[in-house]
Nucleic acid binder design. Sequence first.
DNA 1: ACAGTATATGCAATTTTTTGCATATTGTCA
DNA 2: TGACAATATGCAAAAAATTGCATATACTGT
Lengths: 117, 117
Amino acid sequence: MNATDYNKLAGRIKLLSHPARLRILDALRREAECVCHLEAFLGKPQPYVSQQLRLLHKAGVIQAEKDGLNVFYRLVDNEMIVWLDHILGPIEGEHPEMIIHKQVVFCPCPKCETGDY
Amino acid sequence: MNATDYNKLAGRIKLLSHPARLRILDALRREAECVCHLEAFLGKPQPYVSQQLRLLHKAGVIQAEKDGLNVFYRLVDNEMIVWLDHILGPIEGEHPEMIIHKQVVFCPCPKCETGDY
DNA sequence: ACAGTATATGCAATTTTTTGCATATTGTCA
DNA sequence: TGACAATATGCAAAAAATTGCATATACTGT
């Protein structure tokens, strides 16, 4: 590993080093989520959430899929998925924050409409 | 995991998200190093190196051991060691930068004097 | 005690991140 | 088409991290 490699690695690690982004990634490694859900359980304004998503998207870590008015983001970076497994522990069952969310939020995104939440 | 947990975790990850600190930790996970060696292969001024070390020390990730004029730093955070294993890959053989360093630096720290380097 | 060496500390300047918010864009439905 | 809803974008203010450097401290050998 030369100096450039360390720079690149550190840059990727920086994506994880922010509470909001870490929470987003923790949610996304379970399944794709739309902005409205992330907004709901982060408790942050929508432009704020979209900006963190933009960061992750520009780095190629997540991918956007449009479905009508909603945009679903999916975690597509395998290395990052492995890192998250080791840092946050493996995924077990449903995301706790999503369970809370289930009781509180009911938006007209496809997931909510089909009764997934 | 609640919001506070994510904050703490992100804070710890932030320690890794800087090229100089990442390089320092990569070196320290092999064996304890004194500041003069870290300074040599980072190619950064000594106060700069000491400051990054202070950050890591305050977070409890590394420990200082004095030996005469020198201070040897040791990586003592097990979780961090595991993270580094997954992010940087497992340790194999000698640190490449230390081999270069072997040819270039010969300081009067105990390691150099005993011919370890 | 003095000179020299390794490391630490403190602080200001700079740069980067984070945050907040107004507004733009895009798609839906009536 | 017009009103509305979900998301994106741009930009400035605030906060935090990084960097550089002068100087302090601690230890050694003479």
